[in-house]
Design a protein around this nucleic acid. Structure first.
Length: 296
DNA sequence: AAGGGAGCCTGGCGGC
DNA sequence: TGCCGCCAGGCTCCCT
């Protein structure tokens, strides 16, 4: 479920319960997800207290009080469930009632907070997600975070920044916006939506929206605004829920009802007076949805 | 050197 | 009903 707004929604769902909690036990139901779990994963986590749950791009960062931070990525299909203590509590934490045990539950974090037990379960059918452990001091030099580009929610993100990033680029706008080394956190859905909102074709070479002298054109400004807005609105809506993914508390995000182009091939373009039809094309192996009439 | 494609996995859906 | 191919929100690696 995971582009930036979904990860942020997960973070907001888990943080109140997890921050300040102590990790009693970590249960790994397999030795790897996309990558192997680090050897010391359990030993470093168990007994530690969670200081903060934050986010960078699509990564969840769980800072512990022992100098380590857990880096987590949800891949394509990862999700968390938060389960409050139930009747089946034991001295070692508690176990899921049979009805709550799901296929592909790969990691269970048994937590204790304010004398009650919590269970945080990570489920991931496709196992493209992963978890890693780094020294908090070197967090931003770690291999996953070091290369990341601008946070599209940040104050510095504007048309000038886009101009600097896209200047001279031959890659299509779609690919440039998906490049995590430039802007970090956008995925297939929100890129399609942002391009539609800004009236720009996903096929247009990224460098061509930049002024000849390298400064920000009107198009750069409009694109920056569209990206900021679509991300902000999606976070506000609790992200998008596709294929029945749930949020940590079991509820559903509803931004998918606001999609104007994503997965809407054949629909009329929603832009007033446009009259175009949404089309699906494939760019670098992935679906792009756009309106050929008003996106130029 | 940047850009495109395959590969990693499982599950759900539509077509026959 | 069953089987098959295609598709899916991400990322890394390898090739040109």
């Amino acid at each position: 479920m995971p582009e930036l707004p979904e990860v942020e929604t997960v973070r907001r769902g888990l943080a109140p319960a997890m921050e300040g909690a102590r990790i009693r036990q970590v249960q790994l139901n397999r030795e790897n997800l996309r990558f192997p779990f680090p050897d010391n994963f359990g030993s470093v986590l168990e007994g530690a207290r969670i200081k903060a749950l934050s986010r960078r791009a699509k990564y969840l960062l769980c800072e512990l009080d022992n100098g380590h931070t857990v880096i987590m990525h949800l891949g394509m299909s990862g999700s968390f469930r938060l389960i409050e203590e139930k009747a089946v509590s034991t001295p070692g934490g508690f176990h899921l009632p049979k009805s709550d045990i799901a296929k592909h539950d790969h990691v269970k974090f048994h937590l204790e907070k304010d004398h009650s037990n919590l269970l945080v379960v990570y489920n991931d059918p496709r196992r493209f997600g992963f978890m890693d452990l780094v020294q908090t001091e070197q967090l931003y030099e770690s291999r996953f975070l070091a290369e990341l580009g601008a946070e599209p929610t940040g104050n510095a993100f504007d048309g000038n920044m886009i101009a600097a990033m896209f200047s001279g680029k031959a890659a299509p706008l779609k690919a440039a916006l998906l490049d995590q080394r430039l802007i970090a956190g956008l995925g297939n859905i929100y890129v399609c939506e942002a391009l539609w909102r800004s009236g720009l074709s996903p096929r247009k070479p990224a460098g061509r929206i930049v002024n000849r002298n390298g400064s920000a054109s009107k198009k750069c400004d409009m694109l920056a605004v569209a990206v900021r807005e679509v991300i902000a609105e999606a976070i506000e809506a609790g992200g998008s829920t596709l294929r029945d993914h749930r949020l940590a508390d079991g509820s559903l995000g509803y931004f998918q009802h606001s999609f104007q182009v994503y997965d809407r091939e054949g629909d009329d373009c929603a832009k007033p007076g446009c009259g175009g039809t949404i089309r699906r094309i494939v760019q670098s192996g992935r679906s792009t949805f756009y309106c050929p009439k008003c996106q130029r």
